[in-house]
Amino acid sequence: MSELAEARRQMVASQVRPADVTDRRLQDAMLAIPRERFLPRSMAGSAYADMEIDLGEGRRFMRPRDFAKLVQAAGVKAGDLVLDLACGRGYSTAILSRLCETVIGIESSESFASKAEGALSDVGADNAVIVTGDVKKGAPEQGPFDVILVNGAVEIVPDAWLSQLAENGRLAVIVRENGVGRAKIYTRKDGVVGSRAVFDSMTSVLPGFEREPEFSL
């Protein structure tokens, strides 16, 4: 077993499983997909560290623990159509491709989107598509979606995301409120969207998703 393969196994054994991530399909996907392939070569040694990884352009790889818990909370099923927002270099899209029928990754950075396409091809994610576009708008022409996953925290959840949920669809996102981050699952049921908090997380806020400061006289 290579050094990176052993690091990947250790990531699942020491970071993911102890965080109550019991979904074996998700564990298997994280064991199978080489996380380092979705990073610059100079960062390969940090691929399996228990931390966020700075990708540049204000973007970060989520901690493996937080990412795994968020995906598990979304309850991705084999027949689901999934929207992967702010997919970066495509790691999240690759993992989701192992869990669902089709996944569409939306990425605002053309350079990240190009890297994601190449990496997804390398790992054989034939049911994954990367689209360069406005993350805030989602992909209304491709929906509605059974699952929408957001790779990073937000201070405001755009209405556009909620409107693209199918009946019983789930939006999994970390919401930062008053400095506290909580992973939330928004679910559409009978046309009404409700939410529940599932765990705390200090995942970094995505650029452009900060709340406007309020001014008082």
Rank of each mutant, 00 (worst) to 15 (best):
G194R: 14
K115D: 11
Q164M: 12
I104F: 11
M11Y: 00
L165F: 01
D146G: 13
L165T: 01
V175L: 12
R188G: 02
A74K: 10
V129I: 09
S111W: 00
L31R: 14
F209V: 04
G88T: 07
A86R: 09
K189W: 04
L171V: 11
V82C: 03
R89H: 06
A47E: 02
V135L: 10
Q164D: 07
V135R: 06
R24P: 02
R89N: 11
A68N: 09
R41L: 05
F215K: 11
A119H: 02
E212G: 09
L70V: 06
K77A: 15
K115C: 08
S109W: 06
L149H: 09
A86K: 01
D54N: 14
G58V: 08
D20Q: 08
G208A: 13
A49K: 05
V157A: 03
E214N: 09
I53C: 04
V21E: 01
S195R: 15
D54A: 14
P140N: 10
G90N: 03
A128S: 05
D146H: 15
V192G: 09
A160V: 08
L217S: 14
V16D: 00
S92R: 00
R98E: 13
A197Y: 10
E177R: 13
F145D: 04
A153D: 07
Q27S: 06
G181V: 07
P207H: 08
N127L: 08
E3P: 01
P18C: 06
E177V: 15
S92C: 09
L31I: 06
V82P: 01
L162K: 15
A7D: 10
K189A: 15
G191H: 11
L96G: 02
G45Q: 05
R196D: 14
A78G: 06
S216I: 07
A94F: 02
G179I: 10
E3Y: 07
R25I: 01
S109I: 04
G143L: 13
F209N: 03
V180W: 00
V147F: 07
L149K: 02
